[in-house]
């Protein structure tokens, strides 16, 4: 009851933001937070719930981004439909990568490495192929209109990103209350035991990676239409993979609100670091690295773990 009230209030506040925040800079900041909350949840499904750490979510992000760009520029596909296609494309690439790695029982760091390798191969292919525009990249022609998923200000993009963020939270919530979610957590905790109890671990992991890839693909498609530009380094580079995996690790693995919280804190801290230290190239990656080490060392359960502990302590104080 209380939680539902808090969530309704949070949603109302999120809907009111564009009327309160007039600065394009801060709206842009919030769009980034929401976009990475979506992709952080995608990573969380596979990494947080199912325990399969991917270092190559750029493979799904980039595929979604290119699917949206190529089909819109080359074939005039409606960008909204393009987002659906981006989800399909991301999910499909995820299925292929998942089939190849899980079929041969790759776990732990081997799985992380194979996903990283797939993303790199796709980056090289995108650099080389003609229909992706090669190293030059692709520009989406400017043609403002809701039907064209282009808005004159940031407000429209903000609402689209918010919609997908709410969708990702709903997916996370549904997963936590479903058989698939329970089976994924069992696989994360102990794969042999899960199998002994009748869990088809291969099928479950495939479902998880497909869902994760689809949600990340949407993120990629949205990126294309928001920035109107995509190139192989942005789409398939390791930077985006790292940024996506940091979000749920900071926020709290295997939690519904972890990715949203993690994305806000990651990008908030990133923005602060940029203001204090200037915008030298590569600085953000150093910052991410330091943050990852600090989180893994001191807060392995993420910020949601901290929130949970504080609430527990507060309740005990309140009871006493």
């Amino acid at each position: 009851m209380n939680a539902r009230l808090v969530m309704a209030a949070g949603l109302a506040a999120a809907l009111a933001v564009p009327y309160l925040v007039r600065s394009d800079f801060w709206l842009g900041f919030l769009i980034t937070v929401l976009l990475f909350a979506v992709m952080g949840m995608a990573w969380n499904i596979l990494g947080g719930y199912a325990g399969q750490f991917s270092f190559g979510h750029a493979a799904f992000f980039g595929t979604g981004a290119y699917a949206a760009a190529v089909l819109h520029i080359g074939f005039g596909l409606n960008p909204w439909l393009g987002l659906a296609v981006a989800a399909l494309a991301g999910g499909l690439v995820a299925l292929v990568i998942g089939y190849l790695s899980f079929r041969y029982g790759l776990r732990g760091s081997y799985f992380a490495l194979i996903t990283l390798a797939f993303a790199e191969v796709l980056r090289i292919l995108a650099n080389w192929a003609e229909f992706t525009g090669g190293g030059v990249g692709l520009y989406v022609p400017l043609k403002v209109g809701i039907a064209n998923l282009q808005f004159s200000g940031k407000t429209g993009y903000y609402y689209v990103a918010l919609g997908f963020a709410v969708l990702s939270l709903a997916v996370g919530w549904a997963l936590e209350h479903s058989r698939l979610g329970a089976q994924l957590m069992a696989i994360r905790e102990n794969e042999d035991a899960a199998q002994a109890l009748g869990v088809d671990t291969f099928a479950c992991k495939l479902k998880a990676i497909a869902l994760s890839g689809a949600l990340t693909g949407i993120g990629g498609g949205f990126y294309t239409h928001y920035y109107l530009y995509i190139d192989p380094g942005i789409a398939y580079g390791p930077g985006v993979s790292v940024e996506i995996l940091l979000v749920p690790i900071i926020g709290g693995l295997g939690t519904v609100f972890g990715p949203l919280l993690g994305s806000a804190v990651l990008h908030g801290a990133g923005e602060l670091a940029r203001r204090l230290m200037g915008d030298a190239p590569g600085l953000n990656l150093i910052f991410y690295g330091v943050l990852l080490i600090v989180m893994v060392r001191f807060m392995p359960e993420g910020l949601m773990g901290l929130v949970w502990r504080l609430r527990h302590r507060w309740r005990r104080v309140a009871d006493a």
């Binding site: 329970a182 069992a186 905790e189 102990n190 035991a193 899960a194 002994a196 109890l197 009748g198 869990v199």
Partner: peptide, 22 residues
């Protein structure tokens, strides 16, 4: 299993529910 294989971070109820979900 001879060497017990619990789902460590899940509760007893959640552990058993993995079985009932079959």
């Amino acid at each position: 299993f001879q060497v017990v294989q619990p789902f460590g971070r899940l509760s007893v109820r959640e552990n058993v529910a993995v079985g009932t979900h079959l």
